[in-house]
Amino acid sequence: MTHKETEILITKYLNGETTLEEEKQLALEVTRDDAPEEWKLIAAMMGELATDEALFDHIMTERATQRFTHKPSLQNWWWAAAACLLLLVGFGFSWRYHRHEADKTVLAASEPATETAPTASSAPTTTMVAESYQDPARVTRFIKELAKVYSADSLHPDCPTSTENAPQESVYLFADNEEQDIIGRLVQVACWYSNRHPGYHLSLNDKQFIFQLEDSRKNIHYQWMAERVRGRILLHCSYTTTNSSVFSTCYREFRSEIENNPYIINNHKTIKI
């Protein structure tokens, strides 16, 4: 920011016309070691809470930028190349082994059946089905971890014992602040999937985030909905068999209770919304 731009911002500040964001920029300028004497009056007026907040946010932004723009050193490139080579060698061996096993199976099938009992070594190996990266349940697991890290309130709507086709629901109440940035994180999670994924639907505005997916193998419909309610983030995770509603009636009532009351009693605990 130029000297003139800072002077303009100081006038705006004294006129009460600056936004909080502009005040953060101003705080960084007026607290610089080489700032003119008269600017130091503004720094003192802004107070340590404001100037330190600006500095804190600046440091955190710098760190995040460094993380993204960090260029790996030559040594790191050698390590990466070595790791790729190892992987290639590993794949080569694995491919040769499986091809050899497949050839043996074809040969065995073409031979006449014998009456010998199968031995453990000739028993078919159990196929390990690796969990797909796109498994929708991964989102719910991520949210559960997030709730644990940020000690979010886990809410339990007082629903009657589940009836057939009733959705399985979990509800969390997070703080709505820059540190946790729950909606931002959920958007990142949605980026794990593309619109080619079954049932993909993403809807986002500054008040609400809705994300839906389907697990077509298990015929399950997932929905995650985060809403800004009374200064908190209310996050509803639910899944159900396809074609039935992802919202239970009792969740709708529960949500309305949260919207209208500053305190709710949940699981024998009083929670401030």
Partner: peptide
């Protein structure tokens, strides 16, 4: 008592970090 003070708590915590 009726207001949320999380915003203030965050500002104070940031100040404490810097301090």
């Amino acid at each position: 008592i009726g207001q949320t003070h999380e915003g203030l708590a965050i500002r104070i915590a940031k100040h404490c970090c810097m301090d």
